[in-house]
Design a protein around this nucleic acid. Sequence first.
DNA 1: TAGATTGTTAATCGATTAACAATC
DNA 2: TAGATTGTTAATCGATTAACAATC
Lengths: 220, 220
Amino acid sequence: MMTVRNRRKMAGIPRGVISRLPVYYRYLSGLSQAHEKISSAELGKALNMTAAQIRSDLSYFGSFGLHGYGYRVDELRQRIAEILGLDREYRLVLIGAGNLGRALASYQNFRRRGFVISAIFDSDPQIIGEELGGVKIRSIDGLEKYLKSNPCDIAVICTPRDVSQGICDRLVAAGVKAIWNFSPIHLQVPDDVVVEHIHLTDSLLHLSFHLRHRTESNQS
Amino acid sequence: MMTVRNRRKMAGIPRGVISRLPVYYRYLSGLSQAHEKISSAELGKALNMTAAQIRSDLSYFGSFGLHGYGYRVDELRQRIAEILGLDREYRLVLIGAGNLGRALASYQNFRRRGFVISAIFDSDPQIIGEELGGVKIRSIDGLEKYLKSNPCDIAVICTPRDVSQGICDRLVAAGVKAIWNFSPIHLQVPDDVVVEHIHLTDSLLHLSFHLRHRTESNQS
DNA sequence: TAGATTGTTAATCGATTAACAATC
DNA sequence: TAGATTGTTAATCGATTAACAATC
């Protein structure tokens, strides 16, 4: 029997649903062991969402709850982890060992979730050979050769704006399918490549906009 | 005469519009001086949006274009800068001088846009007194006293998850109205306080989700 | 003027929510 | 069983887009 929800499922998961899954996962991960069960109402209260939205989001992937009870925290977290693809390791290469690149390379939280930086590239001869978080900085010239023998899942772009699109093109040509972009430009990529943009300054401007136009309630 | 658009304006600017303004601004800022004019169609092509959306977004704030011509790049950038509140300086305080806090403090791009870090706080006696990007690290104990004599516009939270809500409450009590949150929790704040969350790990999980469920087109 | 592109409306599309039958 | 909460539908709400009159 083909329900409407099944059809929605087939048609693809809405963007909003996908970006809320990590939020649920993060919250569940932060709960103590003592917290055995949680209802959509409780979860919604903690995250400022409606209970209906949470149930609707989860139902895209199956039925993880128990009628009249709620969700078992452990199980729900585990299921979401699977949906998010957290049951394996991901190899990352990082391009650009400036301020931000260095900070990301030494931030150990990503590794904890299974995201391992396996190589760092830069174009500055001054820093090539240095180590960052246990990983040697290589010359950007060797990018293609490295990727050929060491395929990576995700490339992290932390380069200055004017070289980022070029680097991105080289990564895509080398077969990279996912890009984490910290450079302040909108990268152009083919349809089968996913890009997640972290535009720090954009987010600051969002704050200044609200400070400027502050009137009544403007909860984010 | 009260048009429908005016009514929409009164009803508040949609979230999506606000988050696209920085994107427009960033793109226009990246254009060379030689680029005098731009049409909504060109802008849309560069940013993977429809021309209609761009025109509709801008029309919330006025009429900045010229019929049959397009937009003058300089003027449009200037107008958006004003809308975003970029015609003044903002004072930031940063809480938590760990990996990420250090990176943000030494990242000079924010200052260039008028966002100036005026103080850094941490609880670790080992690093209190150190300088980061020309700013001394102070003891978190002095937070309230400092804010009393040095009001700030935006507080940047880079603390570990278990202390972040507490720090946030102290900031709000001290009158801070805008928070840039890098800590991996959903902060609870009153309605008149704006929070921008930067959840780096959430964004990584978005990528792993796409890698896991990769089928046809999944452009971000 | 003819050509081009804006600003704005109405139509479309998609996402959120309220409500409730199903069920533990 | 009675009480509670899920999963799912239909209704609502809001955002995007196509289309076009206005106009430079």
